[in-house]
Design a protein around this nucleic acid. Structure first.
Lengths: 144, 144
DNA sequence: ATAATAATGGATAAATTTATCCATTATTAT
DNA sequence: ATAATAATGGATAAATTTATCCATTATTAT
């Protein structure tokens, strides 16, 4: 479904959000450890997310990754997926056709449309914050 | 969503089914031309589908690819996806966790479950034959 | 038997994704 | 100023996916 990079990106962002909700910055090392992802690869992904202004980063000692109140309030899963994998997964044709629409549909169009639209709307309405709250409350897990 | 190989495999199988419904065998060349896929790569995919007994192949002149009545009646999209990409896409965790279930869910589990299950059930209930009929009736397209 | 035809299978190559390493930059505390 | 710390960015490498080429095998018609 999502690329490895995107899976790590989603897990990392949810973890950073959870820490930010508790008023803590977190380091690359801590993130990678907490979401069971390769550290250096995760670093590249965090850079992307930071450039896309989905998360915030500070250099130097006491530095680390965090999300500011505005980011915590506004970031939806769709922004993360779009920043890493692009929006093809929730906008494109299931059979990979360039032009596939109501007028010239692929054979799977009708059956696929509902699922793709549901995925799209789920990603666009689900906030990182709400997922971070479930994690904070100990209801959900990010590794293993 | 699906790999390129899987997209080509789905398109090719639907095309072969359409031809079989009209009582025609079809060649690799014709298939690749009709679904706009690279010929040699498509050949590898057809071999996989043939080994998985999703389609039938005959060598020699008058040879080609086809689906027998039993295949036309029974093959669902899920078998094709499973044969090429595996079943991770409609069975696995959205965030890529090994262990993610009701007891130990990932943060996205509840939101993702519905979509994944709907995708699973769509793939398991949609037959290649019904899609081939839409194609045969000129209602749907397989290239571009 | 022979020639023609179409799938098969093996060896590679190109492209992309996943991953690592390390010097550099920014920042903090002393 | 200096040392310590943590993110950044560039250069690569490993793995996987996508793709090509071509000799071989099976089959058909003559």
């Amino acid at each position: 479904m999502f690329s490895k990079a995107c899976e790590y990106g989603l897990r990392a962002t949810i973890y950073i959000a959870e820490q930010s909700l508790s008023g803590r910055k977190t380091s690359l090392k801590e993130i990678a450890g907490s979401i069971a992802s390769p550290e250096s690869f995760t670093s590249k992904i965090l850079q992307q997310l930071s450039r896309s202004e989905i998360i915030h980063s500070d250099k130097g000692p006491t530095g680390g990754f965090s999300m500011n109140p505005h980011q915590l309030e506004t970031v939806k899963l769709s922004s993360i997926v779009a920043a890493i994998d692009g929006d093809h997964i929730y906008k494109g044709c299931g059979l990979g056709l360039e032009q596939c629409n109501e007028k010239k549909p692929c054979p799977l169009h009708d059956q696929f449309k509902g699922i793709r639209d549901e995925l799209k709307s789920m990603l666009e309405t689900t906030s990182v914050k709400e997922l971070a709250l479930g994690l904070k409350g100990g209801l959900t897990m990010l590794k293993r």
